[in-house]
Design a protein around this nucleic acid. Structure first.
Length: 480
RNA sequence: GGACCUGUAGCUUAAUGGAUAGAGCAUCUGACUACGGAUCAGAAGGUUGGGGGUUCGAGUCUCUCCAGGUUCACCA
């Protein structure tokens, strides 16, 4: 059945034609739900219509109101306040309406079929050298929530995760484990895998810094010391071995990344998010070179004297962007060009959403522009869902200062607090222990999700753990 | 320096270009309490960063200035 708002809009157009003897169609009839403090269910804004009626807003509204009441049986009454025509729908309409939706299992959801538009949502995209933190939580909850909404709106949603599983930062934790790990594993230590690997990344940094200090005390400049430290050289060497497919290095890499994936999976489960498909940068980091080559032959891109390849975006108010280094290796942007292309070939998506922090606004602007220049019309289908950083009451998270909030720790803290508060308030008095745990977990996650999602994604947000789990106020627990 | 984002009550924030800018926290008053806490009822709190413009109508669009943030790598 046609929605009542649409019928009101359609009849309003008819009213204007008949009342004012005109063929002119107003651009947009605004039908909105009536303010809570006013009588009525729907409101037609008649200010824009006075241009056609050549009458005062009140008069126009009254005339249209009369017409609607006569021609739309669902309307039992109307009221005019200034240029606002407030329509009252009859009880009979509402009863019929509620009856019609009472049996609908998921009211408001559009069915999804093979023919529905395909929307790819990429989110999470963690690095495998450290555990997830508070910022990832915002990303994951946003990505998953948006996917759910888009799916309910009748689209085939593909939730994908592009894992950054290669590079110098991964080698750092691998090297540190090799040197100081003593063969420790998640199984032997009982530690969560991502945490264990993360600790070795921190260990590397610590030892590396010590080396830099030592070198600087012998008179080297900081810059020099950073480049010359034996540890960083070893890590670079390891990256090289990895890229050359050295079996031992690959084995270690596979083993340690496996630990991290186990850890991530647990965190994802706790957060209640999921993915249809994982991509790994180790498999995609070489993509995009072909696109660059074809861009060169079509003169969209250009090569500098040293052999490096660039896109000139100065004509679009941006800068020049490097796509291939002088040694022929690719950069982040090159890979993203390639993965976007790969995804389009794979899904023929109608929309591709990247849930990525706003510090990469420029990156995605450039990505779209270069794809467009390369002749891919689907570049317009890419959308960067940009979100702001999460700050804490005592300031920003800084890994150097140890103020990073670990995702698992935070979730656990929320659960503990939920338990403490409900105990104090005597809310779960005689519940069995396992039910208490379940309720506390739901309250904690509800608190986290509501608090993270209630703020405009674009904005830098303040996460106040205490406030988020308050049983009063604009919080998840209060709503639950 | 250029580009982009943000600026709403003391704090955290909401508002497809529409009506009197809506909430929560904190504050204050009252109720209940032996007292406090919790709870309930109510109040106060705003030149929407400043200034111009467009519009019947601007927190929202536009220009400009101010403040804060991000970004502009042969890093990812």
């Amino acid at each position: 059945m046609e929605r009542i708002e649409n019928r009101i809009a359609r009849l309003t157009v008819q009213a204007i034609r008949e009342l004012y003897q005109t063929a002119e169609t107003p651009e947009n009839i605004q039908v909105q739900s009536t303010r809570k403090d006013q009588r009525g269910d729907y409101t037609v804004v008649t200010f824009p219509l006075t241009r056609i009626s050549h009458k005062k807003p009140e008069e126009t509204a009254t005339e249209i109101g009369g017409f609607l009441k006569d021609n739309l049986p669902e309307i039992s009454d109307f009221e005019v306040v200034k240029g606002f025509l407030n329509l009252v729908l009859s009880d009979k309409f509402w009863i019929g309406f509620f009856n019609s939706i009472a049996e609908v299992h998921e009211y408001g959801h559009k069915p999804v079929t093979e023919q529905s538009p395909v929307v790819v949502v990429e989110y999470s995209s963690p690095n495998t050298n450290k555990p997830l933190h508070l910022g990832h939580i915002r990303n994951n909850l946003l990505g998953f929530a948006v996917s759910q909404i888009i799916s309910a709106a009748g689209n085939q949603v593909k939730m994908v995760n592009l894992v950054n599983d290669r590079g110098i930062h991964i080698c750092k934790s691998m090297l540190a484990w090799q040197k100081w790990g003593d063969g420790i594993t998640p199984a032997s230590s009982g530690m969560k895998g991502d945490k264990l690997v993360g600790d070795f990344y921190i260990r590397f940094d610590k030892e590396y810094k010590a080396e830099i200090r030592d070198l600087m005390s012998t008179g080297l400049s900081e810059e020099k010391a950073k480049a010359e430290a034996p540890l960083i050289k070893e890590a670079q060497d390891m990256l090289l071995r990895w890229e050359n497919g050295d079996p031992e290095t690959i084995d270690l890499w596979t083993k340690m990344n496996g630990w991290v994936y186990d850890g991530f999976e647990k965190t994802y489960q706790k957060l209640g998010v999921a993915f249809d498909k994982f991509y790994h940068e180790s498999e995609t980091y070489k993509l995009g070179k072909d696109l660059v080559t074809s861009g060169l032959t079509s003169n969209v891109l250009f090569r500098k004297e040293d052999g490096s390849v660039w896109a000139d975006l100065t004509g679009d108010g941006l800068d020049q962007k490097l796509l291939l280094r002088s040694d022929g290796t690719s950069v982040y942007m090159t890979q993203d060009l390639g993965t976007a292309h790969q995804r389009f070939e794979e899904f023929h998506f109608d929309r591709h959403i990247y849930v990525v922090g706003n510090e990469q606004d420029y990156h995605f602007k450039v990505l779209k522009l270069i794809l467009k220049k390369l002749g891919f019309e689907w570049a317009d289908k890419l959308y960067h869902l940009s979100y702001g950083m999460v700050e804490l009451p005592h300031g920003r998270m800084k890994s150097r200062e140890g103020t990073v909030v670990d995702a698992d720790d935070l979730i656990q803290e929320m659960i503990d607090t939920a338990g403490k508060v409900s105990l104090e308030l005597g809310k779960l008095g005689d519940f069995p222990a396992d039910e208490k745990d379940l309720v506390n977990h739901r309250i904690a996650l509800g608190a986290l999700k509501y608090y993270m999602l209630k703020v405009d994604p674009q904005k830098t947000m303040m996460f106040n753990p205490e406030e988020s789990i308050d049983f009063n106020g604009n919080t998840g627990p209060f709503i639950q």
